[in-house]
Design a binder for these strands. Structure first.
Ligand SMILES: [Zn+2]
Ligand SMILES: [Zn+2]
Ligand SMILES: [Zn+2]
Ligand SMILES: [Zn+2]
Lengths: 167, 167
DNA sequence: GTCGTATGTGTTATGTTATAACACATCAAG
DNA sequence: CTTGATGTGTTATAACATAACACATACGAC
């Protein structure tokens, strides 16, 4: 699955330097928490690391298993609390369609996330809809409605899975 | 809550002739099923009617209760099967964010639904993002990914609830 | 330092949403 | 009438999520 000594790996459908992306995300979170007076505790940090390592959508119970095996919380609430914190602060997103969570690929930046979810392999890529485009049409339909948060979920088939099926 | 003899009621944040909208939707479903050789059975029809009557997001178990009280299926699978059928055929949408279902307001038309979900009163309005707008940006981020279905969920506060809170 | 408050965690129990699996019913075509 | 496909009834259980309360820890005020 992984590719020799190349620091780039295919993750979330996109090749990138993952070690760097993990480090960046953790640092961004540390930074934000320090600035905002939030407590980036062991469980929270570890939960974020787990999401980043896997770099795919993980269920809360899946994250919990990992936390358990490291002695960081044994019951569902431990995982949900950590994940809720990460989501609330923009370090992760919740993918409703899968009842799962992913680390945000643009932490710190205010964005409308768009998730590409492969219904075959369950991998998830995060891309982003620039607030400029498309949104106006939605706002137009939203008379009097104040939009606070918005997300896009696209379901389909990733490049890898298409190859496997139609070779 | 309802407004005298006026055939228009505020539903899904938008005033409209609801009796007509229900009739239209049912007829569209009958039509589509006849054409496609699908069986628009009692449970399925009733489930759609229930969604249309309420015209709001309803959980599967909520729909089930209504079906039960009419002797149309007593267990969860009955509701889930009917709802899955409606979703699969475009008569209803599933709102992931709420684990709930709503009747589609544009049955028959191929569209990217956008849901405005009031986090206060839980009402849901369906509007639509024209496939033309905004989507290109997402497709651009989706190298090799074949999008099959897509939806937009916006969370916020509806006009009514804003008034109540900031009078 | 210690006190008090706010915030985070541990733990138990329970609620909510969803599906697997298999028997039986219904329907439409041959 | 037979047959195969599709839909339904029923039981049981899986998967996801939160309420509630006791305890611990962090942190500023005094
Ligand atoms: Zn990465
Ligand atoms: Zn795939
Ligand atoms: Zn209506
Ligand atoms: Zn509202």
């Amino acid at each position: 699955m992984s590719s020799s000594a190349d620091p780039e790996e295919t993750l979330g459908f996109v090749r990138h330097d993952h070690a760097r992306c993990v480090a960046t995300a953790i640092r961004a979170a540390e930074r934000h928490c320090a600035d905002a007076g939030l407590r980036f505790t062991a469980v929270r940090r570890r939960a974020l690391e787990i999401l980043l390592e896997e770099h795919k959508a993980m269920g809360a119970y899946e994250v919990l298993e990992r936390l358990q095996s490291e002695g960081l919380g044994a019951q569902p609430p431990a995982a949900y609390r950590a994940l809720d914190f990460l989501v609330a602060n923009g370090f992760a997103h919740r993918i409703e369609r899968l009842n799962a969570f992913v680390a945000c690929s643009l932490p710190g930046e205010n964005h409308v996330p768009a998730f590409l979810i492969c219904r075959n392999c369950r991998k998830v890529a995060e891309t982003t809809a620039l607030p400029s485009a498309g949104i106006p049409e939605i706002v137009a339909g939203a008379t009097g409605f104040r939009i606070e948060r918005m997300l896009i979920e696209a379901e389909g088939c990733c490049a890898d899975c298409q190859e496997e099926r139609e070779p």
